Amino acid sequence: MSRPLVVGNWKMFGDRQMVAGLVGAVAEAAAARAGVAIAVCPPFPYLSQAAAVLQGSALRLGAQNLAVEASGAYTGEVSGAMLRDVGCHYVIVGHSERRSLFGEDSALVARKFRAALAADLTPILCVGEQLAEREAGDTERVIAAQLDAVLELCGEQALAGAVIAYEPVWAIGTGKVATPEQAQAVHRFIRQRVSAAGSTPTILYGGSVKPDNAAGLFAQPDVDGGLIGGASLVADQFLSICDAALPR
C-alpha cells in the first residue's frame, strides 16, 4: 500500500478560533510524522482560513461535500472548482450522514465522485452498511452496489487514485466500533472487488476510531488508515491516532 492516510472530518463543528488552534497544532506536528499522510476537512466557511494556517506544512486540506454541477444558478451549492481554488486536495463524497439525512443515493454519490475527479480533487468515497443490513448478512451486497455505482458511471479505473472509506453506519457516533477482524474482512472484500477492475485505492476505516482502538484497526493488512470524526476535534487525540498509523 501507499503511505497510510488519516483524515479528520470535523462535520458541523468549529469556529475561527478552533481553526487557528487545531489546524495550527496539527500542521506543526505533521512534520514529525512524515510516515503518515494527514488531512483535515473543516466546514465550508473555514476552508480558506484553514488553507492559510496550514500553508507550507505537510498537512492537506479537504472538504466534506461538493455539488454535482461545475457552476451555475444553484443557490447554496459549492463546486469542486471552488474547493480546488481555496486549496482543497480531498473531498468526501457519500458520507453516511449525507446518504441517510439528505437522501443522497448511490447514483448521486457517483455523480459527485465524477465531479470531484473533474475538478482535480481526490474523492474520499464512503461506503457502509446499516445495522439491519449487517445482521441480515447483506454487508457485502450493500457495499458492492455502492462501489458499482461509481464504477459503472466513471469507468473501471475511476477508483485507482481515489480513497475509499468503509464506515459501518452502526458504528458512527454510537461508541460502537467494528472489531479489527470485522473491519479487515470488509476491507479485504473491498480491495478484492476493486482490484478486479484494476484499481488499488487507499482504503480507510471510519466509525468511532479513538486513540485506544486505532492501533488494532490499523494493524490489519487491508486497513490503510482512518476517517476520523469526533476524535479529530481534539489535537492530542487526533495526533495519537496519526501515531497509531505510522508504519512499524
Score class of each variant (00 low, 15 high):
145 A>N: 13
34 A>K: 15
141 R>N: 11
77 E>V: 13
109 V>R: 01
97 E>G: 06
110 A>P: 08
77 E>G: 10
113 F>E: 00
46 Y>C: 09
118 A>F: 07
110 A>G: 12
78 V>M: 02
73 A>C: 15
134 R>E: 04
126 C>T: 04
100 S>E: 12
62 G>I: 10
46 Y>S: 07
121 L>S: 04
33 R>A: 10
48 S>Q: 10
81 A>F: 10
70 A>D: 12
91 V>N: 00
52 A>D: 15
84 R>N: 06
90 Y>I: 09
119 A>C: 08
81 A>E: 13
73 A>N: 13
90 Y>C: 06
147 L>Y: 00
111 R>P: 07
49 Q>Y: 09
54 L>S: 05
56 G>E: 09
117 L>K: 08
42 P>F: 00
101 L>S: 11
106 S>C: 13
114 R>T: 12
69 E>I: 10
121 L>Y: 01
77 E>A: 14
66 L>I: 07
130 Q>D: 08
100 S>M: 14
135 E>K: 15
126 C>N: 03
102 F>P: 07
119 A>K: 04
85 D>G: 07
139 T>G: 06
41 C>D: 07
117 L>C: 12
127 V>T: 05
114 R>W: 03
44 F>A: 13
76 G>E: 06
133 E>T: 13
42 P>N: 06
86 V>Q: 01
64 Q>P: 05
109 V>Q: 01
109 V>S: 02
